[in-house]
Nucleic acid binder design. Structure first.
Lengths: 126, 126, 126, 126
DNA sequence: GTGGTCTAGACCACG
DNA sequence: GTGGTCTAGACCACC
């Protein structure tokens, strides 16, 4: 599990870490129950402040994607997330994303093809 | 064209304005060539500072979604946006969105159904 | 002499008019002594407010590029401009222009070639 | 790196700041990777409002001349600018500049000599 | 510490 | 009327 961080990006570092872990889990690179690197380790590997890594982990925990245990550290799979809320949020996000794409001249077919491709890649890696 | 702003949201106000205008254009509520409210007007209507509204308009102008004309203010339809960049961005965003959804227990079928629904609504209103 | 105005440009309309007349004179499309269209005519042809056209003419007059006579209207060739001031201004402008170009990856040779080309076109049309 | 600002100039302050930084980079006074003063610092040093300084930095960032990093502020050298667009812009600007010069009685030889001199100074300081 | 956002005014250039 | 610029504060998120 390697993180690639862009310190010049508008996306905050802690959110980049959070995002890449989410991608790692959904893509099957991180399996349920698997231990995540400790905050200290990840901080050392990436050169990012420990507080920043901690913030990412807390975020993931709060979202129900990982569980944090004082003894065994962080593990993939948590309390389970709110499916209905996720669906609502997804709809809102998709509306904006698709609107932007259309205004940029992207056709409906391109979008649907892309959706399928993204799913394929997620399933393939799993 | 009515904006609903959430002043407590994490999303900056100027970005909320920008997003709702994007949705308005893609949804057909704002037609190409149509005049957007002046910065002053929108500022007065929403209670948001002029500079904040201005920031939203500048963003939209830079993205090529609107044109700001010295004589008549802002109008829908600009220089045209970068289609290839939009596709790249869309792919990145979709990957993360779908990953989050899956982690929250949303099935692939639900996602695809949602995609179709979102498109339907956009086309219907158009 | 046809003006092409871009109402969406950052450059004010009156300045665009002024610029194109300068280009027209230097390029030989407008000859010394030749009459410029009246403010009223130019305003009607371009759809620009008469005050705006007037502002362009006043600017050109003040720069010494045209002469305005209440009876015969505006004519190319005026009181003559300040050569030393023009050289100073040119140096300042070139510094900035060349600096920008260099930062954008343009090589010195490209710049010099472009200078020659621009001159050629000016001389050719004359 | 010292800025000299003219508060009475037609050129907006943020643009003067932007221009001088461009000149500083191209002239070698600011080296790639070097840190620019923080917005606060520059604001305090020049007596200019933070938002105005910020506007200059945002402009430079958008042009690809500097990178703004969440951790360490702004640094020289960014995403790289659009060379082709720069060439087009340069041609347009040179046409106007040379035309103005000619109308002011500046000879072609003077202009070419000036171009060479400007380049020499840029290379010398580098 | 840094930049990002926002406010409530103001003045100016443009058309 | 319009947008463009600027000020002098403020609060917040990030690191």
């Amino acid at each position: 599990m390697l993180l690639s961080l862009d310190f010049g990006s508008d996306t905050p570092i802690y959110m980049q870490i959070r995002n890449q872990i989410v991608l790692g889990i959904a893509g099957g690179k991180l399996l349920p129950g698997e231990r995540l690197p400790s905050i200290r380790t990840l901080s050392a590997e990436t050169g990012v402040n420990m507080m920043t890594v901690n913030k990412a982990y807390q975020q993931l925990k709060q979202e129900g994607f990982i569980a944090i245990d004082r003894r065994s550290g962080a593990r993939v799979g948590g309390s389970g997330a709110d499916r209905k809320a996720a669906l609502r949020q997804l709809e809102t996000d998709l509306k904006l994303l698709f609107s932007q794409a259309r205004l940029s001249g992207v056709e409906k077919e391109d979008v649907l093809r892309l959706c399928a491709k993204v799913f394929e890649e997620m399933e393939g890696k799993k």
